[in-house]
Computed example of a mutant assay.
Amino acid sequence: MSGMSTTENSPESPQEPDSSRAAHRGRPLQTEFNDGRDYPRLGSFSFRRGTLTDNQENTWDENWPHLGRVLDENPVTADDQVIDLDDWFGRTGHDTIVEIGSGTGTSTAAMAPLETDHNIVAVEIYRPGLAKLLGSVVRGGITNVRMVKGDGVEVLQRMFAPCSLAGVRVYFPDPWPKARHHKRRIIQTGTLHLIASRLKPGGILHVATDHADYAEWIDELVNVEDDLEYLGWPDDPAVRDETVPVLTDRQIITKFEGKGLDKEHVIREYLWRRR
C-alpha cells in the first residue's frame, strides 16, 4: 500500500473517503507490499484543487523540466524510475537528503542554503505547494534543491535506490487524528523499514510532530525497525552536531507549526540512524 506525502505544512487537505475510483485520478498507482509490515492505507479520497497564478505557471513551465520530476503512474518496470542523482544535480560526490511531504517548502528553502554540500529532494503530492517551493528556489538562486511530485512512500520505493540516501525528513505529517484513519499515518512499521532500506549506513531519519496523539503513536514505534538505531532527541545542538551528520535544526517556523505553538502544542522531534 502507499503513504501520502501531504503534510500539515501543505494547504491541501484530503476530503472524506470517496468510494469512486475517480477519486484516485492524478495519484500514483499504489505499490503492493507483502512483507507482513504495516504500510499507510489511504483508500479513496479526493483533494481540494489548488490553482497557480500566471507567474507561478510561467515559472513552472520554465524551470520544472530540469528541477522537477513526476512519479509515473504506469512504469514499464518496477525500477525504471530510479533517479541518477549525480546526473540530476549535475555534480558527483554529494550526499542526498529527501524530505517527504515538503508542503509549500518553507523549511526546505530555508535549510537548503545552509547545507549546500548536500543534494535536497523535496517530495510532495500537491502541485501548488511545489510551485511555491519552485518559486523560492528560483528567486533565491538555490542550486541544491530538486522536487518530485508524487506519493511519498511510492517515491521512496520506486525512485530511490537502496542505500542511496544520507537522510530522510518527515516534518509535521498529517496526524489523521480520527482513530479510524490511523491506518493512513505515514509513520508505520513498513514505512520505517522502507526508509531504512533507502538510507546509507549512518544515514539519519528525522521526524517532527506537534500532535500529541501522533507523538504517542510514534513513541510505540521507535524501536520496531532493527535496521534503525533510535537516537532520541538530544536537547543540546552541539551534541546533535557530534552524533548526526546532517542539519537537524529547522531554520524557520512554518505557518502550521506556528499555529500549533500558539495552541501550546509541544513539538516532538525524533532521530534514528541507519545501522
Rank of each mutant, 00 (worst) to 15 (best):
M1Y: 13
M4W: 11
T6S: 12
E8H: 09
N9H: 14
P11I: 04
E12K: 15
Q15A: 12
E16H: 10
D18L: 10
S19A: 10
S19I: 11
L29P: 00
T31H: 10
G36F: 08
R41A: 14
L42Y: 02
S46H: 13
S46E: 15
G50V: 02
T53N: 07
D54Y: 12
Q56S: 07
E57T: 13
W60H: 08
L67M: 10
D72H: 08
V76N: 08
Q81N: 05
D84P: 05
L85H: 03
T92V: 14
V98M: 05
G103M: 00
T104I: 15
P113G: 03
D117S: 10
D117T: 11
I120W: 14
I120D: 01
E124V: 00
L130R: 04
L130W: 04
A131L: 03
A131F: 02
A131T: 06
L134Y: 00
S136I: 13
I142D: 06
T143H: 13
D151A: 15
G152S: 04
V155C: 10
Q157N: 13
Q157W: 13
R158L: 10
F160C: 01
F160V: 01
A161L: 02
A166P: 09
V170Y: 00
D174E: 09
K178F: 02
R180F: 05
H181M: 07
K183Q: 03
K183P: 00
R184E: 00
I187Y: 06
T189K: 13
T191C: 08
T191D: 04
L194R: 09
S197M: 07
L199N: 04
L199Y: 04
P201L: 15
L205K: 02
V207R: 02
A215R: 10
V222G: 10
V224P: 05
Y230G: 11
L247S: 09
F256T: 11
K259A: 04
K263M: 14
K263Y: 08
K263E: 14
R268G: 03
E269H: 12
Y270A: 02
L271V: 07
R273S: 08
R274Q: 09
